[in-house]
Simulated assay, not measured.
Amino acid sequence: MPPIDGTEQDAGTESRACAQGGVTTALNYMRTGQYYLNRGGDYADVFPEVLSATEGKSYVDYAYHLAPMMRRHIEEIPALVRDHGVTSFKVFMFYGSHGLHGRSTDQNSFLMIPEGERYDYAHFEFVMRGIQAAREQFPDLADEISLSLHCETAEIMDAALRMAQAFPHIRFRREVTVGHLLADIDTASGIGGKVNPPLRPREDVEALWEHVLAGEVDWVVSDHACCRDEQKFGDPREDVFVAKSGFGGAEYLLAGLITEGTRRGLPLGEIAKLTAWNPATRFGLRTKGAIEAGFDADFALVDADTEWTVRAADSESTQEYTPFEGFAMTAAVTDTFVRGHRVLDTGKVVGDPIGRYQKRPTGA
Rank of each mutant, 00 (worst) to 15 (best):
E203H: 13
M157L: 11
E152G: 12
T153K: 11
H123C: 00
S245G: 09
A164V: 09
P114V: 04
A188F: 06
Y252K: 10
E203P: 14
I191E: 01
I185W: 09
D235K: 14
F172L: 12
A133K: 06
K232G: 01
R237G: 10
G190Y: 08
I145C: 00
P198C: 00
Q231T: 11
F138C: 03
S245M: 14
R228G: 08
E152W: 13
Y252M: 07
E251F: 12
L141R: 05
G116D: 03
R237C: 09
D184F: 13
S189D: 13
L161Y: 06
F172W: 11
P114D: 03
V240S: 15
D223G: 03
H211C: 13
L199M: 02
G116L: 15
L213W: 02
F126C: 07
L147A: 01
L213Y: 00
V178A: 15
A214F: 06
L213V: 01
C151V: 12
S189C: 13
R173V: 15
V240K: 10
K194V: 07
G234Q: 04
V127Y: 06
P168I: 06
F167D: 08
V212T: 03
E144D: 09
A225G: 07
E206G: 04
C226E: 09
A166P: 09
D186R: 10
R237M: 09
T177P: 11
V242P: 15
A214V: 14
L208M: 06
I131P: 07
E175H: 11
A159N: 05
L182T: 09
D239I: 13
E216G: 03
K232F: 07
V205H: 00
V176F: 05
F247L: 05
R174V: 14
R200C: 04
L161M: 11
A207S: 08
T187E: 07
A183W: 03
I156G: 01
E117V: 05
C226V: 06
S245K: 06
P168F: 06
F247V: 12
Q132N: 10
N196I: 10
E206Y: 03
W209R: 01
D223F: 03
P139W: 00
V220M: 02
R162L: 12
V212C: 01
A214K: 07
W209T: 01
V221T: 14
F233G: 03
M163P: 14
Y121G: 08
W219N: 00
T153V: 15
T177A: 13
A250I: 09
A243N: 12
R237W: 11
H211F: 08
E251M: 13
E155W: 15
D204G: 10
P197W: 00
V217K: 04
I113V: 00
E117M: 05
